[in-house]
Design a protein around this nucleic acid. Structure first.
Lengths: 106, 106
DNA sequence: AAAACACTTAAGTATTCGCTTGACTTTACG
DNA sequence: CGTAAAGTCAAGCGAATACTTAAGTGTTTT
């Protein structure tokens, strides 16, 4: 998160990213590699310098996921209302009883 | 993520959450505890059953962070445009950005 | 009361992570 | 040229993590 925050203020080289952290350059490189796999950071190398920036595709991925969850949570409230109505009519709640590998291996 | 997705489709007990996973109930409890620390899940116990739902505060936290990053990335583009305009006018690059553009003449 | 249920808690373990070190490659500069 | 800078790669180590097992606790059901 701190690396993405740094990069959201403007592009930076790997050494520049590493500077505020008490870490080796190699460690930073490993973090950036993971962030690139997540499409949160993109980079290109010019000469011996690798410059990194935020990749907005990763941010999109995250915010899309969050908004999807929030939408279905909204529908959940509707379903709760329906459930309470059923309850008032005397219907029993659906007991989807889980019974799978509570202890020990299958 | 899978637990939050499950809960975004409607509340569930711990056993119900555990069902689709090949994990013990204890493992699921540990995951849910972490999610509660992150305010991504909330739960209350009724009798011997603990029912869990999505806590929208956690979702808000995430999407707020993402939109903040995106805003500053936006400002970054403005700065890039300004930088390129300066370049076209033949002005020397500012020292903080001077590390690029060492190679061939434009 | 006894048994079954739905967790809860603690402890142990095996794997995974994060990081460092050190050797190496490539590029820039005098 | 030689040397320094910026980064890459692989190996290794300690610490954290994600599980499991096993023994509780409180609550329904029979």
């Amino acid at each position: 998160m701190a690396i993405v925050e740094r990069l959201s203020r403007g592009p930076a080289t790997l050494s520049e990213i590493a500077q505020p952290f008490d870490l080796t350059l190699a460690a930073i490189v490993q973090h950036v590699q993971v962030l690139e796999q997540c499409n949160l950071v993109k980079s290109q190398k010019t000469g011996r310098v690798r410059t990194c920036q935020v990749d907005s595709r990763g941010l999109d991925l995250v915010s899309d996921w969050v908004t999807k969850r929030r939408l279905t949570v909204g529908r959940q409230l509707d379903r709760l209302g329906k459930f309470l109505a059923d309850e008032d009519l005397g219907n029993p709640p659906t007991p989807t009883t889980a019974k799978r590998r509570i202890h020990g291996k299958s």
